[in-house]
């Protein structure tokens, strides 16, 4: 590694953004109105003006043939999520390499995918969509919903990590040592600067770009196909969980309402 000394100066901080080539944030919708429920997930380009949210919401409502009452609700949920990002945007984030393990664990229709890979969460040229497409192509997954779902999952993780890094950023810069010792670090395997080089180190202090063979399986995607029955069961379970959750929330709401009123 002598030949390529990275620049000693710390890479500059930049305004918070999605650490991907395109500044798209993941968004999730879960809206219920007049007994109908809309669940959706997509990415939103934060470069777009925020006022486009309402037309977008309206569009969704129309496209999905939902009652127009959905529009304000959708728009509100999106607004909330975007507002969170805008708040973060006021802060700065580091740009130095930071390789972390991302995990995929998702189900799209009747396909279940588990996967794990290393991702430089501060690589602003990363391309989750391209990665997801490639993955689907390599695995010969034809369902067109899978690739976006994978990309979204990656984006959600990146977003989450980026947020955490902001939260811990200041502290990180102050004392890495503490963090390392505490051992609860998100970036635990790469305590030393979280560069990929740390992953490459071997016990014999050699550096190898090739992973130990016994770890190959862990970093390999596995795809499972569920039968329709299983899918139904899972859907039902999710539905039930959601209902329970909602009831709880309603309860809480009622409580707070009563509390406020009195």
């Amino acid at each position: 590694m002598k030949n390529a000394q990275p620049s000693t100066s710390r890479p500059p901080l930049v305004k918070f953004r999605m650490p991907t080539a395109e500044n798209l944030i993941p968004m999730r919708l879960d809206v219920e109105f007049e007994g109908r429920r809309l669940k959706d997930a997509f990415t939103w380009n934060v470069e777009d003006p925020d006022i486009e949210i309402y037309p977008f919401a309206k569009r969704i409502t129309m496209d999905m043939d939902l009652p127009s009452g959905f529009t304000p609700l959708i728009s509100q949920q999106m607004q909330t999520q975007l507002a969170e990002f805008r708040a973060l945007e006021a802060q700065e984030m580091a740009t130095e390499e930071r390789v972390q393990t991302l995990r995929l664990d998702l189900r799209v229709n009747n396909i279940v995918i588990h996967d794990q890979f290393l991702w430089d969460v501060n690589n602003f040229e990363s391309d989750p969509e391209g990665f997801a497409r490639g993955l689907c192509k390599d695995l010969q997954l034809e369902d067109p919903e899978i690739a976006p779902a994978i990309a979204l999952s990656i984006r959600e993780q990146l977003y989450e990590i980026a947020k955490q890094n902001i939260a811990t950023g200041r502290e990180t810069r102050i004392s890495k040592k503490v963090r390392r010792e505490s051992g609860v670090d998100f970036t635990q395997p790469s305590a030393l600067g979280s560069s990929a080089v740390n992953f490459m180190r071997r016990p014999n202090s050699k550096i190898s770009i090739v992973r130990r063979k016994n770890e190959w399986d862990m970093f390999e995607p596995t795809v499972g196909r569920l039968s329709d029955k299983e899918v139904e069961a899972i859907d039902a379970r999710e539905e039930r969980n959601a209902r329970i959750k909602r009831r709880q929330e309603e309860k809480e709401d009622a409580y707070t309402n009563r509390y406020v009123r009195v």
Binding site: W119, N123, E125, S126, D127, F199
Partner: peptide, 18 residues
């Protein structure tokens, strides 16, 4: 050879490897 196959054996940012 697919990328998915390769990336399990290589350490590093999957984007760069890709």
């Amino acid at each position: 050879l697919t990328f998915t196959e390769v990336r399990r054996m290589l350490i590093g940012d999957v984007n760069s490897i890709r």
